[in-house]
């Protein structure tokens, strides 16, 4: 008998996206450019994070008509964002047949205490995390992919690096503990013991780990792959740059050939200007999207 929406089927799509680049797009035209450049999926949203930052106000799920337009324009998977804890937005996205939902801190949170129960859905979810405990809590709620939060819309890779190192370092530390020490570690991480045990044994998350939040150059993409990311999300970094088409292609190339500096160098030539970027100290405490969610 055919079974849909199993954990294996959900993480299966995440597995398919590995080694690839998922690009933020705001309309069908950008989606076509992304697909043509070799994106393995697109994230449909109304404004890229850099514009959400600039405009302020409440950022919500995208207009369904816009999502449909993008689904019709490309054959690669289409993802869309729901607000943290906004069950109804996620239901709407599932009814639209999007391939993956990003329960995202880039949008304004709808629930300050609870994330969505992702087991209730047939389609997979990706969630952001800043450290291992947060990643494992999201997996405990049913996430089929974890991404670093980074600091979206800044074009500054520093926070993504911090989060990726927190997550992978946390995994390595768990591996050094004895079985009797794991319950206490689970308590400290605020994460389900069963998943903590699984990670300690396998040495990796039970779902794919991607990088998001701050990639602006091919070298940024290669850096994150070297730090353990299994694929990259790029938001503002592409369509806020001078030549999105070439930059998109170059970031795809650098994600595949991340261990080959000559290829990354070749991909980085003649790209025009990257997005300007924001230094973290200029954000202030209220400007940090990564602090949304727990």
């Amino acid at each position: 008998m055919a079974e849909r929406g199993t954990f294996r089927v959900k993480t299966g799509l995440a597995e398919m996206l590995k080694g690839g680049v998922i690009m933020d797009v705001v309309d069908a035209e950008q989606a076509r450019i992304a697909e043509e450049a070799g994106a393995c999926a697109v994230m449909a949203l109304e404004r890229v994070p850099a514009d959400i930052r600039r405009d302020g106000g409440v950022a919500r799920m995208s207009n369904p008509a816009m999502i449909r337009g993008i689904q019709e324009a490309v054959s690669i998977p289409v993802m869309a964002k729901a607000r943290i804890g906004h069950i109804a937005e996620a239901q709407v996205l599932e009814s639209l047949d999007v391939d993956f939902i990003d329960e995202s801190e880039v949008l304004t949170p709808a629930d300050e205490a609870n994330h969505i129960d992702k087991f209730e859905f047939e389609i997979p979810f990706v969630c952001g995390a800043t450290d291992l405990g947060e990643a494992l809590r999201r997996i405990g709620e049913g996430a089929a992919m974890i991404r670093s939060k980074g600091e979206a819309g800044t074009g500054n890779i520093v926070e993504a690096v911090r989060h990726m190192r927190e997550i992978t370092g946390g995994i390595r530390r768990l591996g050094t503990l004895s079985a009797t020490e794991l319950p206490s570690a689970a308590k400290d991480l605020g994460a389900p013991l069963e998943i903590v045990r699984e990670v300690a044994t396998s040495g990796w998350l039970p779902v794919p780990l991607f990088c998001a939040g701050g990639i602006a150059t091919p070298a940024d993409a290669a850096l994150m792959m070297q730090l353990g990311a299994e694929g990259n999300f790029v938001g503002s970094g592409i369509f806020k740059s001078e030549d999105p088409e070439r930059r998109a292609r170059a970031i795809v190339e650098a994600t595949t050939h991340f261990a080959d500096p000559e290829r990354v160098a070749a991909a980085s030539e003649a790209l025009g200007d990257a997005m300007t970027g924001i230094e973290m100290s200029a954000l202030g405490d209220d400007g940090r999207l990564a602090e949304r969610g727990w």
Partner: peptide, 26 residues
């Protein structure tokens, strides 16, 4: 699309002789 993805045990003797094979379609 992804919502229609599924897994199913199928008999494909020429690919996996013996018991049925857990086929995952994404």
């Amino acid at each position: 699309r992804q919502r229609a993805s599924f897994e199913e045990e199928l008999e494909i003797p020429a690919v996996a002789p013996g018991n049925s094979f857990p086929c995952i379609f994404i």
